[in-house]
Simulated scan of single mutants.
Amino acid sequence: MSLDEAYLEYWTEHFEKRVHLSEYERTVVCRKTDGCSKTLCNCDLNLKLKPLLLQHELSKHNSSLSSDTAGETDHSEKLSTTCLLCGRPYPVYDLVTFGMSPDDSVNEMRAKIEQKTGLTASAGIAPNTMLAKVCSDKNKPNGQYRILPDRDTVMEFITDLPTRKISGIGKVSETMLNALGVYTCKDLYEQRAFLYHLYSPISFNYFMRICLGIGSTFVER
């Protein structure tokens, strides 16, 4: 939708594949060092370090299986602490394995964005794009918020939501709606008689969709 914003249809194909992903495929190498460093490696750790970590763990595992004698020396190779690409030491990092739920999946996506670009991201998880956009602002910065896809939850969320939080309602529209006593999405429904006569059919239908929590579920490429 813009340089730093996108909508994703996330529920079908992704989760059909996700249930078959191994722990390794759901694991992200997360550096603890904030920002870029002139003394530490700034390469993509998941591209270069993650395969080495897997190889190292397999080496240790195979070595332990072949150790029949008590006290036998472990001959597994030690993992290098220096990046083979830039020659600088690796930063302090954690291996984070994400689960199968929608929240875990979005957390993984945000973690990968941060590790790849150095930028944090916020996300909203909701039944449609309108609500997802609102949710993405809920726990900024570097957070996420989810609305479960059922009517009661959606209506509870939307009832006291200020109209200004809805994408497409700017300062001018907010001022005009406030003059009619409309401050929240619930007010849109309660003042629908005024809105019907004062606004165009397109705007009126848009307001009614907002107060019912209805938004697009189709993402155009």
Rank of each mutant, 00 (worst) to 15 (best):
R192K: 08
D94K: 15
S101K: 07
N142Y: 07
L3A: 14
S136W: 06
V219Q: 00
N142C: 07
T117S: 06
K112T: 02
C43E: 11
K32S: 13
H75D: 08
L85Y: 14
E13I: 13
E13W: 09
E72Y: 09
E220Q: 11
S22C: 03
R192A: 06
E23W: 02
S167H: 14
D34F: 15
R18C: 08
Q55M: 02
P127L: 11
V19K: 15
C36R: 15
H75F: 15
S2V: 13
T175G: 11
S64E: 13
S122H: 01
T82I: 12
G35W: 04
R146W: 00
L21N: 02
V172E: 15
M100C: 10
K133S: 09
A179L: 13
I210N: 01
L195Q: 01
S59D: 09
P201C: 03
H75R: 13
E190W: 02
E25S: 05
N205D: 13
C211V: 07
E23V: 06
K78Y: 10
I202E: 07
E190D: 14
K48R: 14
I158R: 03
L8F: 14
L188A: 06
L40C: 03
L47N: 08
S136A: 12
T73C: 07
S203D: 15
K17S: 12
D152L: 15
N42H: 03
L49H: 03
R164I: 15
C43R: 01
T153N: 13
T69Q: 05
A179K: 13
N178H: 14
R192T: 10
S203W: 04
T159D: 13
L161P: 05
T153A: 14
R18I: 05
K112V: 08
T163D: 02
K171A: 14
V19S: 09
Q55H: 12
F98P: 11
E114D: 01
F157H: 02
Y206H: 04
I210M: 06
T217K: 14
C43I: 06
R26Q: 04
S64R: 13
T12I: 11
